[in-house]
Design a protein around this nucleic acid. Structure first.
Lengths: 109, 109
DNA sequence: TACCGGTACATAGCAACACTGAATACCACC
DNA sequence: GGTGGTATTCAGTGTTGCTATGTACCGGTA
């Protein structure tokens, strides 16, 4: 979508992926496809995989390798308790920021 | 506020400052103080000044030096037509992203 | 005079993140 | 054997906000 979107995704994309995983476990390729479906047409695959590696290293998710019928084995990620806590923190941060920005849009101050 | 906020500000802080300037011209120190007032307690001064330099170089704002009663001269920034256009683009990007994130929060998919 | 604090701006170095581009691997089908 | 969809990985790049520090102007005060 452009440079603005790229910059805006920093910090929020992680929350988006965690929120997706909060609903049900998923693997990288699947998440990428879902995001494209949602209109995030230009999110690079590499971006998602790198993000998954990061949240795995921070112990926010559990990982399970599952054989695929067509292709190499999938790495299925599921949110663990620590991840859910982190996600809540994300929602708090998001609320704070988005409320203030919406205020600004309504010509506030 | 923490690392999450720092990352989330990337891409949005610029829009916030442009939105402030859309209401009325302002200078860096003033903007920093206003942001702190709004609860962005830990936005560094240097961050704002660097941001202002960037948007000036991209010709999104006009600058005027105004003598101050107490301290060095102020650099007063005002949004120009190009900046307003860029701000509209920001709002479009913001809307797209925030709508999808709100959707996610409501347990969507 | 000397010093402090508030005002006001600037900048070098750092860390984090998303993107680009390419590579690898597995499988089915023609 | 080649193509295309599935699935993951990684090195290199650019942008951004933060840290820390420095500079400069001014009024008050001891």
């Amino acid at each position: 979508m452009g440079k603005q979107m790229t910059e805006m995704l920093k910090g929020t994309l992680e929350g988006v992926v965690l929120a997706v995983l909060a609903e049900r476990p998923a693997y990288g390729y699947e998440i990428t496809a879902w995001l494209r479906d949602q209109g995030f047409s230009d999110i690079a695959e590499g971006t998602i995989y790198a993000l998954l590696v990061r949240i795995e290293q921070r112990r926010l998710v559990d990982v399970e390798k599952v054989p695929s019928e067509k292709g190499p084995p999938r790495k299925v990620y599921s949110l663990n308790p620590q991840g859910r806590e982190y996600l809540e923190e994300f929602w708090r941060t998001w609320s704070f920021l988005s409320e203030r920005i919406e205020q600004l849009r309504k010509g506030g101050r």
